[in-house]
Design a protein around this nucleic acid. Sequence first.
DNA 1: TCCCTGGCAAGTGTCGACACTATGGCGTCG
DNA 2: CGACGCCATAGTGTCGACACTTGCCAGGGA
Lengths: 241, 241
Amino acid sequence: MPPSPPVTNGADVARLRQDLLFSALRGIEGSSSLTFAIFEELATSIVEGRLPPGHEVNSMDLARQFNTSRTPVREALLLLEREGLVIVPPRRRPFVSPVALSQVREIYEIRASLYALVSELVVQRATDEEISSLWRWQKVLENDAATGDVDGYFWHNVGFRDAEAALSRNGELQRRLSSLGLQMHRFRHLSLSLPGRLLNSVADHERLVRAYADRDVALAAAVSKSLVLRGLRAIEASGRF
Amino acid sequence: MPPSPPVTNGADVARLRQDLLFSALRGIEGSSSLTFAIFEELATSIVEGRLPPGHEVNSMDLARQFNTSRTPVREALLLLEREGLVIVPPRRRPFVSPVALSQVREIYEIRASLYALVSELVVQRATDEEISSLWRWQKVLENDAATGDVDGYFWHNVGFRDAEAALSRNGELQRRLSSLGLQMHRFRHLSLSLPGRLLNSVADHERLVRAYADRDVALAAAVSKSLVLRGLRAIEASGRF
DNA sequence: TCCCTGGCAAGTGTCGACACTATGGCGTCG
DNA sequence: CGACGCCATAGTGTCGACACTTGCCAGGGA
């Protein structure tokens, strides 16, 4: 996948969303298309909250719903389990995995660390051109923040992060982050809903890209990390969970 | 799982190995035991090199070999693919995934970053008692290095790392590291075979545990990271791949 | 009333079968 | 003599069936 050119048209956020949800998983999608289609469908439903935590997902109902046999459904459920979206207890009915605050914190900690790595690698490996392409994402984010478009901001932010990951020249890293992102999108709505959060975040992004341009490894890593952790603190402060 | 008490008896390295290979994956093992048994068996074979990269693993042969139908085999193959040990091209025969130096580097970079995180968290969260339990691992490692027991050293090292991860109080992190470890064990024999490597590594471990005892976050993280990266450099220097 | 027990329904794990597709060898034709 | 296309074969993806397990409910005994 090329470094994802920035999007200026704010209308197709939906397409961006669909692209980014599975960005890194697309390549693998081993197995048949049916299994993967079911996986994708279910993953989206879970991530977007249509299938709430704890909801039962038994293979018979799903098979009926998708007009298939249980075999591909079972395989999809296995994949979902590996992504942490579903729990499949032996001999019992599978259900959508619950989200605990403790887990949210765990995932954010990991993300913070990995994005710090991404930033280090970007500083070391990205060309000036590529870095300036991040400036364009930055402009889009500023615009979203100015107009208060929270949803647009969120997805453009994901796009920015994904573009960074691509510039790190580390495919494994990209894949792991995408998998973590899938988990994280489940509680995304919590992290950006606070007043003032958007503007803070924009400022952080600006500092980050500037650090890239200055080729300042330490600063870039630090900003990148704090950017993620700020999101975590926002969730904790929101009092939900 | 409790913080894995240090082992002084060097005889049962084999048991340690079996325990550690799947440490974090054990808990999840959703699905049936048959699928997971096949998964474990194949994963071990791949990791230990009995199934070399590129080797075909088609579901019919495996089903015959395990005396089952193809269904559990297919499910196991899917899980193996998620772990990156197998590639399952649509409509084509699955095969053991190749290992490229580029991938080795990618994985080591990620591990370095995550173990730095582990060390930060250990400093912040582990009790004095827990840290002193790491000293006991350290003693075992010193002994292995002194007697030149490379295999023992390797597995005790993995045990040490696993114990650290447990002390980080971050289950997700533990799981991701275990998954990465599975991948990494495939080229483990490369990283410790160089002369002098063992003693270097022991010294690093000592510095690390000392940093824990001193509650020095920055130093612990730095040492932890460099410990992993040193392994990478050893592999690169070995000239293989 | 509450607990225990036995049976029932729903759902899982596994199986063997079947159609479809990729692959490699063979014959055909330029 | 080499390239191209056809065909058999091996293997995949999917299906429906079946036995076994689990959780639940009703009925009977304390």
